[in-house]
Design a protein around this nucleic acid. Structure first.
Length: 294
DNA sequence: ATTTCAACCTGGCCGC
DNA sequence: TGCGGCCAGGTTGAAA
């Protein structure tokens, strides 16, 4: 479900409503929703403050204090969350009835609203992990293989261009590879490619430096626009921590708009099968690269 | 080494 | 109303 903009909107909600609070209790209602520390997640969390809310790409983490406010050392561990396709983090009153797909609930020492992890398809997960260095930043050890996302200071434009054009694959496949550039998923890949007028199947090794520059600019533009509108909500599956939907769905140019007119030229948007999924594009603005067919 | 693809799940929607 | 088939925003690990 959520890509970078949706995760960032959630991160901001956590930063505002959860950072600084100490965990009093943790309850795991579905074993698949916890990785690695299966079974002892509650013990690892109890009594510890959540210091802040961080994000790289589609991963969220909350650095954990050690429970002693008189000894404010830099965090060595964090509670890591990946939302998968359908995960939600919701702040709810402690007495509120359990959601249908409630998987983990965290109660706080201040007796305020609790944090609930709700996940219909259970592709998402949580875990406690040590922090390690990767691409100039302290991140959870399990995500050190993830590249910085294009909104991070640490993102290296020239390095990206170099690695991208050395690949032997299609452009959209590369955009979805989180070890090359993180945060981009199916929706925003299609939207950025449309904005940059590039076809999803374009061979990466044929891209010019100018095309990569334009692509990166459009990736950043679409992610930034989406964050400003609270993310994209097709249905009730994506909401912020207060249960509210985002409005970027109405700004999508091609994604999910098969046969509707391209906002730029009016040609009917095309849908192509892509990796057991779909790619949406404009047949006129984004013509097949040369004679290549998928 | 690099690239591709099935598998992990549940539920909503569509057509018969 | 019911049932099968299809689709859904992600990542991983293993195979090619």
């Amino acid at each position: 479900m959520p890509e970078l903009p949706e995760v960032e909107v959630i991160r901001r909600g956590l930063e505002r409503w959860v950072a600084g609070r100490a965990i009093a209790s943790a309850e795991v209602l579905h074993p698949r929703s916890v990785r690695r520390n299966t079974g002892d997640l509650p013990a690892r969390l109890k009594g510890r403050p959540l210091l802040s809310a961080e994000r790289r790409g589609k991963y969220l983490w909350l650095p954990l204090g050690d429970g002693d406010p008189a000894d404010p050392r830099e965090a060595e561990e964090a509670l890591v969350v990946h939302l998968g396709m359908s995960g939600q983090l919701l702040l709810t009153d402690r007495g509120a009835p359990a959601e249908r797909h409630l998987r983990v609930r965290l109660g706080f020492a201040d007796d305020g609203p609790e944090l609930r992890f709700v996940d219909q398809r259970t592709f998402g997960h949580m875990l406690v992990a040590p922090l390690a260095s990767a691409y100039g930043r302290r991140v959870p050890e399990p995500i050190t293989h993830i590249a910085p996302d294009p909104l991070e200071e640490a993102f290296d434009d020239d390095g990206f261009a170099h690695r991208l054009t050395r690949r032997r694959t299609g452009l959209k496949r590369a955009l979805l590879d989180q070890s090359l550039i993180s945060g981009v998923g199916n929706i925003y890949a299609d939207e950025a490619l449309w904005r940059a007028r590039l076809h999803w199947a374009r061979a990466t090794e044929t891209l010019t430096a100018a095309e990569v520059t334009e692509l990166l600019a459009q990736v950043r533009a679409v992610l930034t626009d989406a964050i400003a509108q609270g993310g994209t909500s097709f249905d009730s599956l994506y909401v912020n921590v207060n249960g509210e939907s985002g409005y970027f769905g109405r700004s999508l140019a091609v994604y999910g708009r098969q046969d509707e007119p391209c906002p730029r030229c009016g040609a009917p948007v095309r849908r192509d099968p892509f990796m057991n999924r779909s790619s949406y594009s404009c047949p006129k603005c984004q013509p097949w690269p040369g004679d290549a067919r998928p």
